[in-house]
Design a protein around this nucleic acid. Sequence first.
DNA 1: CTGATAATGATAATCATTTTCAATAATAAT
DNA 2: ATTATTATTGAAAATGATTATCATTATCAG
Lengths: 149, 149
Amino acid sequence: MPGPHRWRKRFEGHICRWTMPREAILDLLSRTTKHLSAKEIYANLLQIYPGIGLTTIYRTLDLLEKTGMIKKFNFRQGENRYEFAGEQRPHHHHLICTSCGKIIDYSDFAEEELELVEKSAKQLAEKYKFLVQDHNIEFYGLCQQCQKD
Amino acid sequence: MPGPHRWRKRFEGHICRWTMPREAILDLLSRTTKHLSAKEIYANLLQIYPGIGLTTIYRTLDLLEKTGMIKKFNFRQGENRYEFAGEQRPHHHHLICTSCGKIIDYSDFAEEELELVEKSAKQLAEKYKFLVQDHNIEFYGLCQQCQKD
DNA sequence: CTGATAATGATAATCATTTTCAATAATAAT
DNA sequence: ATTATTATTGAAAATGATTATCATTATCAG
């Protein structure tokens, strides 16, 4: 379903209107494999949507995150980064280069990981009475380029 | 080795002097099982060390982290939290309650986790030429109390 | 004991993110 | 289509955590 209202259905049930900034932000995130920050999204959109406000970017990102259409990440870089969460994108985690900030998605070991996570969630629920709703696994280190430097 | 210079040896090799604020901060962190923020540490220490500055807290936390004596965590709460990293404390990860912010340490599944992490690190190094130096696993959800509310 | 200089702490500055609020625009009802 | 309602926007100011500046102080080698 191409066109300006491609994502509209996902909003039904949420109290909100479909607007150009929302379309533009979601569209941008759906097209890139990068993990953009609010400022980067702002810089990108200014070109095709002069006049858009950084405040709106932040508000929209919050909203999109609540609807589950995007995911928010903190990679210890001082600013949050966002990632489109469509069905096309498989479950994955991240390798973060602590030197240059490069982020690599990986979805290897998905089965073993899922197994461990589910087992953990179950037993943690029993032992600590904790209801697991989300998990995060990430590796920090050096990317190929930064290992040379 | 009790006394004011208990931790001094760990600093050897690092260009720094052993001072009261450093002793006080490290001592506080070594005594608590909580994950304190800079401001919480500040509030705590003001009682036994009036005149200590928040700036010094931040600087010292950075230093202690670099020496590996403490660990820094971002639990998506807007402020970083710190944890003592002595040998007494086993390798563990965290359950974070998204409602009240409570943090629970757990060290269950250490073997399976270590196995998965090591296997992952090895294969990620091959496939992505990424040198893994650190990893983070955390579960977000609701603690017992917040499940009731 | 003393000098070199690392460390401190008050203050100001940064930087990401939020809040405020008047103006605007999306949608429902007419 | 037109209008009324009110969610959304964007500019500007506020916030809150963290960092930089810099004159003063304190550690520790000699």
